[in-house]
Design a protein around this nucleic acid. Sequence first.
DNA 1: CCTACCGATCGGTAGG
DNA 2: CCTACCGATCGGTAGG
Lengths: 197, 197
Amino acid sequence: MVELTRRRAIEDVASDLFRDRGYAGTSIRDIARALSLQGASLYAHVTSKEDVLWAIVERAAARFEAAAAASEREAEARRPGDAVEALSALVRAHVDVLTADVDEASVFVHEWRSLGPERRATILERRDAYQHRFRTHIEEGMGVGAFALTDPSIAAMTILSALNGVAAWYDPAGRLPAHRIADHLVDLTMRMLEAPR
Amino acid sequence: MVELTRRRAIEDVASDLFRDRGYAGTSIRDIARALSLQGASLYAHVTSKEDVLWAIVERAAARFEAAAAASEREAEARRPGDAVEALSALVRAHVDVLTADVDEASVFVHEWRSLGPERRATILERRDAYQHRFRTHIEEGMGVGAFALTDPSIAAMTILSALNGVAAWYDPAGRLPAHRIADHLVDLTMRMLEAPR
DNA sequence: CCTACCGATCGGTAGG
DNA sequence: CCTACCGATCGGTAGG
């Protein structure tokens, strides 16, 4: 991958390191070393270690949100008011974003706890709003009898856990391309919810 | 909770801290402070920080394994050769262990990466063997037509991700008792797999 | 279990 | 982007 800016290269390397050592387990010098720089030289490009984490988490959040909004618009255009269609599209969008940059997505999923109090609170709100999209479509589907469930909240959290789990085993060079994995996850999660016809 | 030994108290406090700050983000002095001790005093009870992590991870692994083995024996006694029964019991056993000590289970699920190379390899093998139990029952169920699936490996990983996700939101003081949450997860995961009858 | 201390490493700054 | 450096904190040891 060719980086357009030095700043972006730093964030990409940091995503990789944060993913498998965690934020606290990764030092500024680790990041610098991966870029063949001296530790102190990083500060010519970033103002703090936490700013690097924030940039990664914020971009990931924005990507998930944008993909979710687009998927909802498209589902509504295809089949207006169809909760099954909307949720399927949302699931696929989530897996697509996740597999497009697994390092970044993993950091978003696991390392937001290392942010300072205000940023952590901001991300928590955005995560809640994101999860709310899933729960809303589940409740709509329940309302029209498409989904047979007793607890839409648990269903939403369980689906998101299942989807985020993909980040732990997805391998871009593995036997299954990302879109086939998305197919499987759409199938599995929809079967989990749908009432037998 | 009354601790039988000082060592165990250290591990319980460490589980709590490791869970929400991570292993690297928790210092020996953090653990000591939570026990009203001086940092150096911890070394009267443990030989290294990693030993504390290992003790937690190892005990959690042993608990998941013992509960899984017991659930398989009991399922076999109730309904010999019934894959649906066996997998349901396995799912319930997993959620039971997880909710019985969420801190310990969370550390097991997320912090094994911080172990040294040999211990990490050992735990990875045990995790693989554990996941294999799930996949085996899924394949058995596919063989007799009880489960309608195309990829048992993805199904096993997706189920385990969904179950482990409970650790992120389960609250012992929350609206749902652990056994009701286990009911929901058994229901959701089985519906994900079962062929329509 | 404490005090006193060790060398190493941490995030970050100054000045070029 | 580098060298030189800062104070703070890290995991851990010595000796009691």
